[in-house]
């Protein structure tokens, strides 16, 4: 799985975002992380092909059984969807 690493001043938490490049809520999630200088890694699953796509989809389903996007892992917690309040809470923003 090829993740894109986004550097940020706030590296207090381990943040992984599973997203779709075309999805409005996924973009909102990236903007929320970017505007708060959060360090994170993301993967646009729709840009993956073949085996990688299947592998990442399985991973997303492990974290969020519906397999919907965005799926955000913050340390040991998982947020399904753009839930700004919950993301802020977990990131202590």
């Amino acid at each position: 799985m090829k993740f894109t690493h986004v550097p940020g001043r706030n590296a207090k938490h381990r943040v992984t975002l599973y997203a779709l490049s075309t999805c409005g809520w996924c973009k909102k999630t990236k903007e929320l992380l970017d505007s708060n200088q959060i360090q994170y890694e993301y993967i646009d699953v729709d840009q993956c092909q073949g085996e990688e796509r299947a592998e990442v989809s399985t991973k997303v389903r492990e974290l969020n059984p519906r397999g919907s996007f965005p799926t955000i892992r913050i340390d040991g917690d998982v947020v399904a969807g753009y839930d700004e309040d919950r993301i802020r809470e977990l990131l202590e923003l």
Partner: peptide
Amino acid sequence: WCCPCRLA
């Protein structure tokens, strides 16, 4: 036109 927020 697959939904942009769902994986096709």
